[in-house]
Simulated scan of single mutants.
Amino acid sequence: MNLLLHICCACCLCAPLNELRKEGFKVTGLFYNPNIHPLLEFRRRLKALRVFQESDPISVIYCEDYGLREYLKKVNYEGDDRCADCYTMRLEFTAAYARENGFDAFTSTMLFSVYQNHEQLKMFSENLSKEYGIDFIYRDYRHLSECSHDIARKKMIYRQGYCGCIFSEYERYKDTTRELYKGNNPHSKDKESTRKVLNTKDVLQRCDCFG
């Protein structure tokens, strides 16, 4: 059976791909993730998937356009259903692509992540399967999450710190703090290695442009 596998990231692909192959599926990947922001993060995840391909060849269809505008148009990012809108956007694209390009079925690595709403993803996929007339392959591989991460570490594949959108990045890092402009040696008496943050008044006083 020719299976179109939506890939959210290389890390979530590692272990599930092996299991799907053991079941006899001929797997083709689809990287379609307009939710991933900012641009540099999007590029990191594209590169991570290509690094994965070097050690474990898999045919992948890449949608490489940075999807900021598409994401903002389709997702109600001010409401409580932001994730549901994001799931639907990516899954619907996958189901439609599978039907239009002769695949027998579709599924997504999002189902294999312990960080996503599993039941919601399953329900949306089943509804899209009926709407588009294409089989949906349901598997619960969440128990392979740590195994997948271990494989990613061994392959030295980039592992992201948040789901994908700019809002999930904020939620992931909003409570973190760090010292800015800190010297390499906090105990050093070398004044050149000690930096301080200037306030606005200091900056203006030191800038010739403002007299």
Results as ranks from 00 to 15, higher is better:
L3M: 14
L5K: 02
I7D: 03
C12S: 14
L13N: 11
L20F: 14
G24L: 06
F25I: 07
T28Y: 12
L30D: 13
N33L: 08
N33D: 07
N35W: 07
L40C: 08
F52A: 02
S55R: 00
D56F: 00
D56H: 10
P57L: 02
P57C: 03
I58F: 02
I58W: 01
V60K: 02
C63V: 08
L68T: 00
E70H: 06
E70G: 03
K73L: 13
V75G: 00
Y77W: 15
E78Y: 10
C83D: 05
C86V: 03
Y87C: 08
Y87M: 13
Y87D: 10
L91V: 01
E92V: 08
E92I: 03
Y97R: 04
A98L: 13
A98G: 07
N101K: 06
F103Q: 01
F103C: 03
A105C: 07
F106L: 05
L111H: 05
S113P: 00
Q116G: 09
H118F: 15
H118Y: 14
L121V: 03
S125E: 04
S129M: 00
S129H: 14
Y132G: 07
F136Q: 04
I137N: 02
Y138P: 05
R139T: 01
R139V: 00
R142L: 09
S148R: 00
H149I: 07
K154L: 13
K155C: 06
M156P: 00
Y158K: 02
R159M: 15
Q160T: 05
C163S: 11
G164T: 03
C165E: 09
C165T: 09
I166N: 04
L180F: 15
G183N: 05
K189R: 07
T194S: 12
R195F: 14
N199G: 08
T200E: 14
K201H: 13
K201R: 13
K201S: 14
V203P: 10
L204G: 00
R206F: 01
C209N: 12
